[in-house]
Amino acid sequence: MGILNVQNVSIRFGGVLALDAVSFEVKEGEIFSLIGPNGAGKTSMLNCISGLYKPTEGDIFFKGERITHIKPHKRAALGIARAFQNIELFPHLSVLDNLMLGRHVRMKTGVLAGGFYWGKAQKEEVEHRYKVEEVIDFLELEHVRNVPVGTLSYGLQKRVEVGRALAMEPDLLLLDEPMAGMNNEEKEDMARYIIDIHEEKKTTIILIEHDMGVVMDLSNHIAVLDFGKLIAYGTPKEVQTNPRVIEAYLGEEHAV
């Protein structure tokens, strides 16, 4: 039994079947990649896992618990974190506050305690500041700690986006194209961070990425989607040589 089980998940938007009876399992502690051509349903799949979409059919189990109909904020509390493809940071807040928001589900302070900044509330803020500083240290964000996120460069914003998800100390981390639009150097940095997260924090990671080199190097297992259908699953080597995958990516003639 893996940490995440996706069973026969289908989702339909009007006449479009975005996901068609997709099933796969993500094992605890692995890097699992979801690849496929544009419009294959990768982000829809992540939306089902993080709860923004409700599958038309099928079930999703996280740590053995059925989460198909649980609201997104409760899934966050269960230990699912996500970094978005299009940066979804809070642009007016500093890097520090964005990361502190990642600590939201782990904190307790309410309106009254926060408003009066009583001893307990203050203690909690400081405690969680330590955790956030660990993430800042981990992702080398020290120099922009107090800068509003909206003013940062694209590459840094992507890193903060990952950092915010990481601040949640998740059991399952969903990374939606963390390297999109980056140059080689930035990609290498990000790949290194992902490996570090995986090795040091033992976090299970689901990765969507278009750079095949990165995907093949990082992943333990890969699932390939095409037009909403799961067409291949296996280790990088198995997927690379799978004729259906080659067909989906390169067209029919090459497959022959």
Partner: peptide, 22 residues
Amino acid sequence: TRVGRAFIAVRDRDIAAEVMGI
């Protein structure tokens, strides 16, 4: 503190806020 930050998160990006557990 926590609640006020959550308010600002709701203002700036409600979908992201929800996925963050708000």
